[in-house]
Simulated scan of single mutants.
Amino acid sequence: MSAERRHLWRTWLAWAGRAAPTLLLVGAAAAFYASGLGADFSLEDLRTNEMGLRAQVAAAPMVTLLVFTILYAVATAAFVPVGIVLMLAGGFLFGPLTGTAATIVGSTLGAVMTYVAARFASGAAIRDRLARGRLGKIMAGFDASPFAYLLTLRLLPLSPFGLVNVAAGVARAPVRKYVTATAIGAVPYSLIYSYLGVGLGKAALAGRAAELTILARPEVALPLAALAALSLIAARRTSAQRSA
């Protein structure tokens, strides 16, 4: 093999290695939407299929928990917008604590997948271009204090989770700090939505799914109040950081 061909072969292998994680995520997203999960998965679907899902969990609890965690991770990595429903489903099907643990692991793994794909795919030219675009401000925040900045973003209720993952990968945020902040930031929302899923599940079993009065029930009202309080605290912290 000539030197030129060896160079072309190595160049192609390098490109394929950089593009492989991104191509896998694109394929996962396509598979999600092709299966109908990306468009049709909702809390109403959970309520409708509640008996069958609970039977599957009872028959093989560890297997269904593993499948749920992997499903959450892939959906997060592939930008499929079913995170809130899956957090509710975790509490609905596995209970608040087990559901919380599964969603924390799933969301962190999914975030790491996106981070890896973005980091591998982005060269210097791509990083410079993205830094001047929509991700520029997010990327810049990782320079001064990556852990604190990322943790704040994770706690903001309207923070673009997927875009933050991409920005962290492109900016080459420290891996250990990225994973730690992502896991810690997932705790409060995972816990709140898991408990909310338990409350909605109980209401559904009691035939109160369509009644507004379920919002006054403690198992539903308390998680909602905690979610509102967390959102307010995160917003005030962000405002304080901007004014500092």
Rank of each mutant, 00 (worst) to 15 (best):
A73P: 07
V80L: 09
M62H: 14
F79S: 10
V63L: 15
M87H: 03
P81I: 13
G95C: 10
L130K: 08
V85G: 00
G106T: 04
A102T: 02
T114D: 02
L109H: 02
I84F: 11
S122M: 10
F68M: 06
M139T: 06
G90I: 01
T98Y: 10
L97T: 12
G106L: 02
L97H: 14
A77C: 12
D128Q: 15
L93Y: 09
T100Q: 08
P81V: 12
A121Q: 02
L93D: 04
T100A: 08
A131K: 14
T103V: 13
I70C: 08
T100I: 13
L130G: 01
F142P: 04
G99S: 11
A60W: 11
S122V: 12
A124D: 15
F142L: 07
A111T: 06
V74R: 09
L93K: 07
L93A: 06
A89P: 05
S107Q: 11
G90F: 03
I104M: 09
A101S: 05
F94V: 06
A111Y: 02
G90H: 00
G123E: 09
F68P: 02
A131V: 10
I104S: 07
T103N: 12
A124S: 15
L130S: 01
A89M: 07
A59R: 14
G99Y: 06
D143T: 15
G90C: 10
L86I: 05
A118V: 05
L88F: 06
T114G: 14
T98N: 08
L65Y: 02
G83W: 01
L130H: 01
F79W: 11
V85A: 12
A78R: 02
F94C: 07
L93M: 10
L86G: 00
R132F: 11
L97M: 14
F92C: 05
A89S: 05
V67A: 15
M87F: 07
G110P: 07
M62V: 15
T64F: 08
A118L: 08
T76M: 08
F79R: 07
F92Y: 14
V74W: 08
F142Y: 13
A102V: 10
